[in-house]
């Protein structure tokens, strides 16, 4: 009994560094308050300040209910050897109910292919700066602030938690929409993800619009113009060409009508390889089945031979007692 207790204790002590460590592989994208920036690494008071410079960029004036893009710019990036870096977009830094959604914003997409306020990005060792962009629908008329924050580990693998935030918020004035402003319909929800090799047909619906043109670009390259087809009832369509590898394509729409011409923010369309998925419960159950069937099969096999052992051998076995 005492022997098993010591062995169990030794095993627990060996496992503690693994189970009690932070999340060196990240926690995945999600909707998180900034407090999680500390909580995911343990006590927020243990955080050290990241040397990365974080700034939030976007339009100063945005129409109520229309789309706008907010970019978080990271300079002098410091992170772990794996390059994992968590980036938050926040409405304040109070640590509770501080996501953009809590302030009335509606996140349509982000440049990593999701629609959450927290994304985890991989930064290559030679990369010194990086942008992460969110496309959001503006809340009701008023003045709003948006902040950004980051968290990461260290390059030396000590897993010391680092936290950084924007020096100053981006202040945005939300104003009422002029009656005849050319715009996308209020329920427009762009496609943000697709598979590699797939041509995407985008459908857009507009209000107070007489002419539409679309531009697209692969991140960091020249802007191309897409052929647009006018459908009935203020609907338009265009095709985004297939990508041959995982990549990010950005596109935006120029809208013309009676009111002042408008240009939408850049929308992001991320191409991903077809994800390999499996039901983990089925895999774990099969794993258990393999353990039991191999054990039972071998014991049964040896038991079958047991009857043919001579008495003298059995006596020998009793004498030896076997491996305890």
């Amino acid at each position: 009994m005492k022997r098993w207790l010591v062995m169990g204790l030794a095993f627990m002590l060996l496992a503690v560094p693994s189970l009690g460590s932070a999340n060196p592989n990240g926690v995945g994208d999600g909707t998180f308050d900034t407090q999680c920036g500390g909580a995911c690494h343990g006590d927020a008071d243990m955080n050290q300040t990241s040397s990365t410079t974080v700034t939030v960029q976007g339009d100063d004036v945005v129409y109520e209910g229309l789309l706008t893009s907010i970019t978080v710019n990271l300079e002098g990036i410091e992170t772990t050897t794996s390059g994992l870096l968590g980036v938050f977009l926040l409405s304040d830094l109070s640590g509770t109910r501080d996501t953009p959604g809590d302030a009335g914003w509606n996140i349509i997409s982000n440049s990593e292919g999701g629609n959450e306020n927290y994304v985890e990005i991989k930064v290559s060792p030679s990369q010194d700066s990086r942008n992460v962009t969110w496309t959001m629908r503006a809340p009701a008329v008023g003045t709003y602030q948006l902040y950004a924050a980051i968290h990461h580990g260290t390059e030396d693998g000590s897993e010391a938690p680092f936290f950084g935030q924007s020096e100053a918020p981006l202040i945005i004035e939300i104003v009422e929409v002029p009656e005849n402003l050319p715009r996308l319909t209020s329920d427009f929800d762009p496609i943000t993800q697709r598979e590699v090799g797939e041509v995407t047909t985008m459908m857009i619906e507009t209000t107070f619009v007489s002419a539409v043109s679309v531009e697209w670009r692969v991140a960091g390259s020249d802007v191309q113009t897409a052929d647009i087809t006018a459908l009935e009832n203020n609907r338009w369509s265009f095709e985004v060409p297939a990508s041959i590898q995982p990549s990010l394509i950005e596109w935006r729409v120029h809208l013309e009508g009676e009111g002042p011409p408008q240009t939408t923010p850049w929308f992001q369309l991320r191409s991903e390889e077809v994800a390999w998925t499996i039901d983990e419960n089925v895999a774990y159950l099969q794993s258990l089945a393999l353990i039991l069937v191999m054990m039972a099969g071998f014991v049964a096999l040896q038991y079958r031979n047991d009857s043919s052992i001579s008495p003298s051998n059995k006596e020998l076995a009793d004498l030896e007692g076997g491996v305890e």
Partner: peptide, 18 residues
């Protein structure tokens, strides 16, 4: 893991006579 457990169980039950 299963096979190793089976091998050890067989050895324990039958001793060196195995």
């Amino acid at each position: 893991l299963g096979l190793a457990l089976g091998v050890l169980l067989a050895r324990r039950s039958r001793g060196v006579a195995i």
